[in-house]
Design a protein around this nucleic acid. Structure first.
Length: 513
RNA sequence: GCCGAUGUAGCUCAGGUGGUUAGAGCGAGGGAUUCAUAAACCCUAGGUCGGCGGUUCGACUCCGCCCAUCGGCACCA
């Protein structure tokens, strides 16, 4: 079954930081989990490269907007590699394939009467070439915040999208699809605003040129946000029906899961569906709007200089490893409605208590005992797994149900609790004592074989989170490095044949503060 | 200002329909043990459940007010 996972496309005026890393990592874990289940996943990310900010930054630097975009897009792409992210494509809004299709879609909106030419009137700051809303203008006492000169009342012709005409259809859609926007708190915000009524929104501007020209009226430039939203379908070639891209990728629409930050919820939950309705395209499956990381209890901001930036992140890679970073992002992050605090100490504690003491230590003690008592040869289990096959099956089911809901914490817990049970089992049955009594070797064999099998299955479930370390675990358990089997096969009981050579492993070294 | 939330042990959070000693994980302190990465295991936390008032035989759980924090309020990518 096809599944299409997207991140927002990142604005090239920014440098990569924890926000980008977080969203992309969450999507990556999700994509890997779905692929593990055998689903046909297409995972997309990219960069948003148009708009007045890029135009201005480029001018300041004395380069062309395209040169600036090229440089920063390359940086984002480089970072994806460093993070080991498995996106299937990287779309840039300045690519011809995207621009052509956006013009096609906008033309269709125009032809369908969903886009029309209207007049915009507002408070204009001539120095900044910016409009302010009535409330903002009032706050500024109708003076430019930069130059102090009075704002002028200006009008401008713009193309508008008839968002207002989709009110009823959107309400019906939300009523029929209660899970469309996640988490529920975010959905409620959207519903609340929807009740206030919708106004038409401009889709073009004329005060800058760094954008996609409006088809048929080229002094207008398509507004960045609409340009950006379309990336989700231009990457699939939907704006070029019958084209090569569409032949290969059209199957991924509408199986789309848009993972976004809460700041862009309105665009994705309301405007994007309305645009799709206007284009008579089916709705995506889900919009998941996560919250933000804060730093040591305070909002991260560039001016405060407390942004967790790329060098900081790379420091964590060096100290704890890439998988540990992924684990922290996926299990401690703000996937739900409230923000999460990023603290070095919390990172360290999570690493030690979960990865070192459980995910690392449990396989370590199991493989150590098998090494010591059986020269590393997987012992034979005369009890056919005892209660463990059923426990593992239940954990896998729980894992899978959690993955369906993008509940990464739940999925991780399903695997973790299995490992904790193995620890408890060892504590209860005391194989290290049985090993001293030759009469009880049969019992010892069964216990250790059951532990090793359970560890192997838990390891499969942890692969999307900890791809590098779980590959090491597979090798330690004699399972080779590149598993070709499906997840269903790999989580069935008894794949480590008796006699298989196992190796003692220590996956997560303790890190001193 | 308007709309919507949240406020429970050091930290992160659970606590349908009100009822004996308010829970978990992590951290911290102690203990016992050794297969293991001084790990797993056992015990310990005495938190006026934001504040005030009300309803009730009885409220963390219902109502009102107040305080604090957070989110949304559309052209911002």
């Amino acid at each position: 079954m096809p599944a299409y996972i997207t991140t927002p496309i990142y604005y090239v005026n920014d440098r990569p930081h924890i926000g980008h890393a977080y969203t992309t990592t969450v999507c990556d874990v999700w994509a890997r989990a779905m692929r593990l289940r055998g689903e046909d996943v297409f995972f997309l990310t990219g960069t948003d490269e148009h708009g007045v900010k890029v135009e201005k930054s480029a001018a300041t630097k004395g380069v062309t907007p395209q040169a600036l975009a090229d440089e920063n897009a390359a940086e984002f792409q480089r970072v994806l590699k460093v993070f080991g992210l498995t996106n299937d494509d990287f779309i840039r809004t300045t690519e011809p394939r995207h621009e052509k299709q956006v013009q096609y879609f906008v033309k269709r909106l125009l032809d369908a009467g969903s886009v029309y030419l209207g007049t915009f009137e507002g408070w204009y700051d001539e120095g900044q070439e910016e409009y302010y809303t009535e409330t903002r203008a009032k706050e500024l006492d109708y003076k430019s915040p930069i130059s102090g000169r009075p704002l002028t009342r200006a009008t401008e012709q713009n193309y508008y999208f008839k968002l207002s005409s989709f009110q009823k259809r959107l309400e019906d859609f939300f009523a029929a699809n209660p899970d469309f926007v996640q988490p529920a708190a975010r959905r409620n915000e959207v519903l609340g605003r929807l009740r206030d009524g919708l106004q038409d929104v401009p889709v073009t501007r004329t005060n800058f040129t760094w954008g996609i020209p409006f088809p048929g009226d080229e002094k207008h430039v398509i507004y960045v946000w609409i340009d950006a939203l379309f990336n989700y379908i231009t990457a699939l070639g939907l704006g070029e029906p019958g084209g090569l891209l569409a032949t290969q990728r059209a199957k991924y629409w509408p199986a789309a899961y848009h993972v976004i930050g809460k700041e862009i919820l309105w665009f994705h939950a309301v405007i994007w569906p309305a645009l799709l309705m206007a284009l008579e395209l089916p709705m995506p499956r889900r919009i998941h709007a996560h919250s933000f990381w804060i730093a040591d209890g305070q909002k991260m901001s560039k001016s405060m200089g407390n942004f967790v930036d790329l060098p900081t992140i790379e420091g964590y890679f060096a100290k704890y490893g890439l998988d540990a970073w992924r684990w922290y992002m996926a299990t401690q992050g703000p996937l739900q409605a409230s923000d999460s605090d990023f603290r070095a100490q919390h990172f360290h504690e999570t690493y030690t208590s979960e990865l070192v003491n459980v995910v690392g230590n449990c396989p370590s003690r199991v493989t150590a005992m098998i090494s010591k008592y059986f020269e590393g040869k997987m012992p034979a289990d005369s009890q056919a797994g005892g209660e463990w096959p059923a426990k593992c099956a239940a954990a896998v089911a729980q894992w899978s149900a959690a993955i369906d809901e993008l509940d990464l914490v739940g999925a991780a817990q399903a695997a973790m609790s299995l490992l904790r049970e193995v620890d408890a089992f060892i504590h209860r049955t005391e194989p290290f004592k049985l090993a001293k009594d030759p009469a009880r070797t049969g019992e010892l064999c069964s216990i250790l074989a059951q532990c090793a099998e359970t560890v192997r299955i838990a390891g499969v479930m942890l692969e999307p989170f900890l791809p590098e370390k779980m590959a090491e675990l597979r090798i330690a358990l004699g399972q080779g490095d590149a598993p070709a089997a499906t997840m269903a096969e790999r989580t069935t009981w008894g794949r480590i044949a008796a006699g298989t050579q196992l190796v003692k492993c220590a996956l997560f070294p303790r890190v001193e503060v």
